[in-house]
Write a protein that binds this DNA or RNA. Structure first.
Lengths: 150, 150
DNA sequence: TAATTGATTGAATAATATTCAAAAAATAGA
DNA sequence: TCTATTTTTTGAATATTATTCAATCAATTA
C-alpha cells in the first residue's frame, strides 16, 4: 500500500482538476468547441483561479472547523497585510480576510480535532502583533463552498 | 453572442469538473490506472463531494464579500437547523455554519456590491426568528478556498 | 460601410479516461 | 503461521474526450 489517497487529497486542494467540456456541452446544448473556446476565455481573463475538489472534511480527517477572529495590536494597524500573508501560508487555514470592525482578520481553519486546533492556535497563530483572539467553533456545517452538506 | 460565460460560471459553482488523471499520475510518478482506482475509491467513500472551479470573484461580478453573524431568538434555540437550511438555499450564500457562542449562525456571502448586499439582508436574510445581525465586511481577501490571492 | 476583432462551429487529430483481467499485497480467521 | 478473502496495483486494449485548425458569422469601431 502506497497511501496514494492522502497524496491525492493534497493535490486536489490545490487544483489538478479540469472542466468536463463534453458534459457541459450536452447540458447547455452547445457545440463542445464553443464551450471550449469560452472556458479558455474565462481562464485568460483570470476569472477562474483553479479547478479543484471539494471534500467531506470529516472523511479526510479535518472534521474540526472554526472561525478565528483576530484583533491586531494598534502598532500593526498600518499594515495588517503582512500578518495576513503569513497566516495564509498555513495549510490548515482555508481563508484569510482583512475586515472592518473590532476584528481585523478573520480566518477559517480546518483541522482534525479540538486538540489539533489548540496546538495550532498556541504554537502558530498566536504571535507578536496580535491583541486578542476569539474562536467561534462550527458545530455543524450546513453549506460550504456553495455546496450543501446533507 | 449567447453569453455562454455566465452559464459556465453557474455550472462551475456546482461542479462539472473532473480530475486530471494523466497529470496527477505524472506528478506522483504512479501509473494512471492506479491513480484512477484510488480516485474512484475516494469518491465511493464520499470523501470527495464535487470537483468545481474557484473564481476570482471580482471578475465574475461578486466582488463584495461579507461574514454575517446571526443571533437567533430564544424561541428558536431548540432548532437552528431549519433556519440554517433555509439560508443555505440562497445562491449568494457561500457557507452556513451553526456555531458556538453569541452568534449561532455564521454566513459567508458573496454579491456584486454593497447595494446588492443591503437588498439581500433587508429582503431575504432578515426574517422572523432572528434576534440580531452583525455584518463583518471583508475589505481584502488574502486566501480563499485554500488558494492564495495575489 | 469597410475593416477589424471576437465568437461560433464542424471536421480531424491528439490526448485522456476507462475497462478488463491478471497479479501482487494486505487483511482476517483458524 | 498458514490459508482464504479482500483490497490494491498495474499493463494492454478500448472508448471517450479535449484540442487544434480553418472557415464562417457576428459585433464593434473608425
Amino acid at each position: 500500500m502506497k497511501d496514494i489517497r492522502q497524496r491525492l487529497v493534497n493535490l486536489f486542494k490545490k487544483g489538478y482538476c479540469t472542466p468536463q467540456i463534453a458534459r457541459i456541452a450536452k447540458e447547455l446544448k452547445e457545440p463542445s468547441t464553443t464551450i471550449h473556446y469560452n472556458i479558455k476565455k474565462l481562464e485568460k481573463l483570470g476569472a477562474i483561479r483553479a479547478y479543484k475538489a471539494i471534500f467531506d472534511y470529516k472523511k479526510i480527517d479535518e472534521g474540526f472547523c472554526a472561525f478565528v477572529l483576530i484583533a491586531i495590536s494598534p502598532a500593526e494597524y498600518n499594515d495588517p497585510e503582512k500578518m495576513a500573508a503569513d497566516l495564509a501560508k498555513l495549510p490548515e487555514v482555508e481563508s484569510v480576510d482583512i475586515c472592518t470592525g473590532d476584528w481585523e482578520i478573520i480566518l477559517k481553519v480546518r483541522v482534525k480535532d479540538q486538540d489539533e486546533y489548540y496546538q495550532l492556535v498556541k504554537n502558530v497563530i498566536s504571535r507578536k502583533g496580535i491583541e486578542k483572539i476569539n474562536t467561534i467553533t462550527s458545530l455543524k456545517q450546513v453549506k460550504s463552498d456553495f455546496i450543501k452538506v446533507l
